[in-house]
């Protein structure tokens, strides 16, 4: 009864609400579009600056669209700096680190999720607690360690730790392994497969989405890593792209060569953008898994 009268009275109000909904959607689009412009324009400016002459790069009013685009800048950059060498160094490190992290973390995660051992869960908690430890705390102590091992100015400090497990990836993979039904492994076990075969032939293939997500994260983290290469690599020919960029920034600082700097920066972010666009879905799902569902 009461509802009927309320309903009747609210009819115009309900239309008002619908109106409001349309307005709300319009406002949402407006805000998000304006924000997108703000977020993307710096990137556009980076690329467009990299295609200008240096005179055009500092003109006022600015040259919004460099025409014709000056791809010559990239050639000049390659000629003056061994960019290909830096790229090779970076790829070398990135590939080994990805392999190391995937291998060692999946092994550990399998042990922690599937094989029983006294004290196992305590060990897992201790490993996990290092996640709370900011990397900065360990930087100097680790440097001292690698210094005494004579690993400084080699790639070892950047690569070797990856082969000894990464708490974040172990955690992620363990959570994922726990969702895989045990029946499959039991069946394999009954058929006579040992632990290693069960791990390699049953669990790993099923965990492909999680492994992919970790590979992507590791790629970005290693590709973009600056502090590690900065403190460990001193020979210029050993530089990764990240440290090389900083060296470039320093070496052309006094001269107006922002167009070349932007070309270098653009080169260094292209793989990240490419991978991101390619693997967007895994990405967003992967983060969701890590961020909330504990």
């Amino acid at each position: 009864m009461a509802q009927a009268t309320r309903d009747g009275r609210q009819r115009p109000l309900w239309m008002g609400r619908r109106m409001r909904r349309v307005l709300g959607a319009a406002l949402t689009y407006l805000i998000l579009s304006a924000g997108s412009l703000l977020f993307l324009f710096p990137l556009y400016w980076q690329v467009s600056t990299s295609l200008k002459t240096w005179q055009d790069a500092q003109r006022f009013p600015p040259v919004w669209v460099p025409w014709p685009p000056r791809f010559q800048n990239y050639v000049e950059l390659m000629e003056r700096f061994p960019v290909a060498q830096y790229l090779r160094n970076t790829v070398f490190i990135v590939v080994l680190v990805i392999v190391g992290v995937l291998l060692s973390s999946s092994l550990a995660a399998y042990g922690f999720s599937r094989l029983r051992m006294p004290g196992r869960d305590i060990i897992f908690l201790i490993l996990l607690s290092t996640l709370m430890l900011p990397g900065a705390v360990l930087v100097i102590p680790q440097f001292v360690l690698f210094q005494t091992l004579h690993w400084v100015n080699t790639y070892k400090p950047l690569i070797v730790p990856a082969f000894f497990g990464n708490p974040f990836s172990i955690f992620l993979l363990r959570q994922f392994f726990l969702t895989i039904p045990l029946d499959l492994e039991d069946a394999a076990r009954i058929d006579g497969a040992g632990y290693v075969r069960t791990y390699a032939q049953i669990v790993l293939p099923l965990a492909r989405p999680a492994l992919l997500a970790i590979a992507i994260y590791t790629f970005l983290g290693t590709w973009n890593d600056f502090f590690g290469p900065l403190i460990y690599l001193s020979d210029r020919e050993k530089y990764t792209l990240a440290v090389a960029l900083r060296y470039l920034q320093g070496s052309v600082r006094s001269r107006p060569e922002n167009h070349l700097l932007m070309a270098a920066a653009t080169l260094s972010i292209i793989p990240c953008i490419f991978i991101f666009l390619l693997a967007q879905r895994q990405f967003i799902q992967g983060t969701v898994v890590t961020g909330v569902k504990g």
């Binding site: 060692s104 973390s105 092994l107 399998y110 060990i123 360690l145 497990g165 172990i170």
Partner: peptide, 22 residues
């Protein structure tokens, strides 16, 4: 238990060598 120890050994060693020891 031995298999488990082998599987988690790299991670535990890494923790000892690259976190706890430093």
């Amino acid at each position: 238990a031995i298999a488990c120890a082998c599987f988690i050994a790299p991670a535990v060693l890494g923790f000892l060598a690259f976190s706890l020891f430093p």
